[in-house]
Measured scan of single mutants.
Amino acid sequence: EPSQADLDALLSAVRDNRLSIEQAVTLLTPSSGGGSGGGSMDAKEILTRFKDGGLDRAAAQALLAGRTPA
């Protein structure tokens, strides 16, 4: 399960175009075949909204942490 520091680094990389959204989703869902963790939004949607400015960093982190299976 990614830590808050991992999520923060991942969000920074996506925002700075050092990591594509697809690459980030793969890192967030290493063994689930890329499927959502059952959250209301999947990781790709969360990351896309964050990059487009629709979500701030704290909200994106909380959503990603919340949808990651324990």
Score class of each variant (00 low, 15 high):
residue 42 D to P: 06
residue 23 Q to E: 13
residue 26 T to A: 15
residue 35 G to M: 09
residue 62 A to G: 05
residue 21 I to T: 02
residue 69 P to A: 06
residue 54 G to W: 09
residue 53 G to A: 03
residue 9 A to E: 12
residue 19 L to A: 02
residue 41 M to G: 08
residue 40 S to D: 10
residue 57 R to V: 08
residue 18 R to L: 13
residue 63 L to C: 04
residue 59 A to K: 07
residue 66 G to H: 12
residue 69 P to T: 09
residue 51 K to S: 03
residue 43 A to Q: 07
residue 27 L to F: 13
residue 35 G to T: 13
residue 63 L to D: 02
residue 1 E to F: 14
residue 55 L to F: 04
residue 52 D to Y: 08
residue 66 G to R: 05
residue 39 G to I: 13
residue 50 F to E: 01
residue 65 A to I: 08
residue 70 A to K: 02
residue 1 E to D: 14
residue 10 L to P: 00
residue 64 L to K: 01
residue 8 D to F: 08
residue 41 M to F: 11
residue 45 E to C: 08
residue 62 A to F: 06
residue 7 L to G: 01
residue 67 R to W: 15
residue 64 L to A: 01
residue 8 D to G: 08
residue 22 E to Q: 09
residue 49 R to V: 04
residue 33 G to N: 12
residue 30 P to T: 12
residue 67 R to D: 07
residue 59 A to Q: 14
residue 58 A to W: 11
residue 58 A to S: 09
residue 24 A to V: 06
residue 25 V to R: 02
residue 53 G to N: 04
residue 20 S to W: 03
residue 14 V to Y: 02
residue 53 G to W: 03
residue 50 F to Q: 00
residue 25 V to K: 02
residue 26 T to F: 10
residue 51 K to E: 02
residue 29 T to V: 13
residue 25 V to A: 07
residue 66 G to K: 13
residue 21 I to V: 06
residue 5 A to K: 14
residue 5 A to Q: 12
residue 56 D to N: 08
residue 28 L to Y: 03
residue 5 A to M: 15
residue 69 P to N: 11
residue 6 D to A: 09
residue 50 F to K: 00
residue 31 S to M: 09
residue 49 R to I: 11
residue 58 A to F: 10
residue 39 G to M: 13
residue 55 L to W: 02
residue 17 N to R: 05
residue 41 M to P: 10
residue 68 T to R: 11
residue 9 A to P: 03
residue 15 R to A: 13
residue 10 L to H: 01
residue 29 T to E: 13
residue 19 L to T: 04
residue 18 R to V: 13
residue 20 S to T: 12
residue 34 G to E: 15
residue 67 R to A: 12
residue 48 T to N: 07
residue 48 T to I: 10
residue 29 T to Q: 11
residue 31 S to D: 12
residue 59 A to V: 06
residue 38 G to R: 05
residue 8 D to R: 04
residue 3 S to R: 04
residue 14 V to R: 00
residue 32 S to Q: 14
residue 44 K to Y: 13
residue 13 A to L: 06
residue 46 I to L: 03
residue 34 G to T: 12
residue 29 T to L: 09
residue 19 L to P: 00
residue 64 L to D: 01
residue 21 I to A: 02
residue 38 G to S: 09
residue 13 A to G: 05
residue 17 N to V: 03
residue 24 A to N: 00
residue 70 A to C: 10
residue 11 L to E: 01
residue 32 S to H: 10
residue 15 R to W: 14
residue 70 A to N: 09
residue 63 L to A: 08
residue 63 L to E: 03
residue 52 D to H: 08
residue 7 L to T: 04
residue 40 S to L: 13
residue 60 A to K: 00
residue 1 E to Q: 12
residue 68 T to N: 15
residue 13 A to K: 05
residue 66 G to F: 10
residue 13 A to F: 06
residue 67 R to C: 11
residue 45 E to M: 06
residue 63 L to H: 03
residue 24 A to W: 02
residue 17 N to F: 04
residue 20 S to R: 03
residue 30 P to Q: 10
residue 56 D to W: 02
residue 70 A to R: 01
residue 39 G to Y: 10
residue 19 L to W: 04
residue 38 G to T: 07
residue 25 V to D: 02
residue 43 A to C: 11
residue 65 A to G: 13
residue 6 D to S: 14
residue 26 T to H: 15
residue 56 D to V: 02
residue 69 P to I: 11
residue 10 L to A: 03
residue 66 G to C: 09
residue 42 D to H: 05
residue 69 P to H: 09
residue 1 E to V: 08
residue 5 A to S: 10
residue 27 L to C: 12
residue 63 L to T: 02
residue 26 T to L: 14
residue 50 F to D: 01
residue 55 L to H: 02
residue 32 S to D: 13
residue 6 D to G: 09
residue 65 A to W: 07
residue 31 S to Y: 13
residue 61 Q to M: 15
residue 36 S to I: 15
residue 56 D to S: 11
residue 12 S to Q: 10
residue 9 A to R: 09
residue 57 R to L: 10
residue 41 M to L: 08
residue 16 D to H: 10
residue 18 R to G: 04
residue 61 Q to A: 11
residue 67 R to S: 06
residue 42 D to K: 08
residue 51 K to N: 03
residue 49 R to M: 12
residue 70 A to S: 12
residue 58 A to I: 09
residue 21 I to L: 05
residue 29 T to D: 15
residue 29 T to K: 09
residue 43 A to D: 04
residue 39 G to T: 13
residue 35 G to H: 12
residue 51 K to H: 05
residue 59 A to G: 06
residue 44 K to S: 08
residue 23 Q to L: 10
residue 9 A to H: 08
residue 29 T to A: 08
residue 28 L to C: 05
residue 17 N to P: 00
residue 4 Q to G: 15
residue 66 G to N: 11
residue 36 S to F: 13
residue 48 T to R: 07
residue 38 G to D: 11
residue 28 L to N: 01
residue 33 G to K: 03
residue 12 S to E: 13
residue 13 A to C: 06
residue 26 T to Y: 09
residue 22 E to G: 05
residue 64 L to H: 01
residue 19 L to G: 00
residue 42 D to Q: 07
residue 19 L to H: 01
residue 10 L to F: 04
residue 8 D to W: 11
residue 48 T to M: 07
residue 62 A to I: 10
residue 32 S to A: 14
residue 2 P to V: 15
residue 11 L to Q: 00
residue 53 G to K: 03
residue 30 P to A: 11
residue 1 E to M: 13
residue 36 S to W: 13
residue 34 G to N: 10
residue 52 D to P: 00
residue 53 G to R: 03
